[in-house]
Amino acid sequence: MTHLDDGRLRAMMDDELSDSDASSVRLHLEDCNPCVTRLAELEERSALVARALTQLDTAAPPTGAHSAVLERIKASRPSRASRPTRHDTRAEPPRSDGRGRFSRTPFARAAMLTLFLGASVATALPASPVRGWIASGWARAVDLFSSPENALTPVSPPEYGGPISNGDVGAQDGVLPGVRVDITGDEISVVLRGIDSGTTIVVRMVPGREAGASAGDPATFRTAEGRIEVLNAAGVVFVDLPQEATSASIEVNGGIYLRTAGERTDVTGTILLRTTDEIHLRVP
């Protein structure tokens, strides 16, 4: 009988297996005493670590931290605000009516993001402290996209007809394998296919002219000029988009999730989080 490895048992213990995987593990445990013993050992060890870590909690969070943070924000603002950018005059925040045309800067691409916040996000967070901004963001996005000149027209990137090679794979010991390509022609297309439901796609806007993608098993990679393909990924996929690309798109399971073109970036995927240089999307 082949025994279960520690990773699978640990994931079982942490309720991190899919329903079908958990069922097969339970079935195995019914007939395998060594694995039952092993699971008990893992549970005991984890409890030991939990108890040990609580020994480290010798200091309480300081009072007055909120005021201190606000002071730091206030103190840092002049220097951060005066940081030069290539397009200072275009880096202004969107107008209060939500119809600002978002400019594209190397430092703050998200400042010009045309966000398409999923209504499902807001409804899934009835008591969330961020519900307020999601609601307002959603209203702004609806307003923005209902305007004919701003409407997002989904267009699939053209099928690539050139040679495609297998990507660089082979990182060991849990480090994510992946691929990187230098952009040519200023355009980059990242295509993700066979991506599992629930997968998080972390899009990072990186300096320079190199695009990249990485993901754990069972993902495979292929690259071609101006194009990266990630196949059959699950869990988390990292996509690095070069800030110097004038046009970039991310296609997931046949739908466009993100596209930059000229002065704007459109996001249609379900957004978990966005910052000035990152967007986290979730595959429904």
């Binding site: 990773g7 994931a11 849990g174 990485s214 754990g216 699950a234 869990g235």
Partner: peptide
């Protein structure tokens, strides 16, 4: 596991093994 994988740049499928 997914949040941990995202934070430390490892495959989500490896988190159980690495934690153990």
């Amino acid at each position: 596991y997914r949040e941990i994988a995202e934070a430390v740049d490892v495959a989500a499928s490896s988190v159980g093994t690495l934690l153990a």
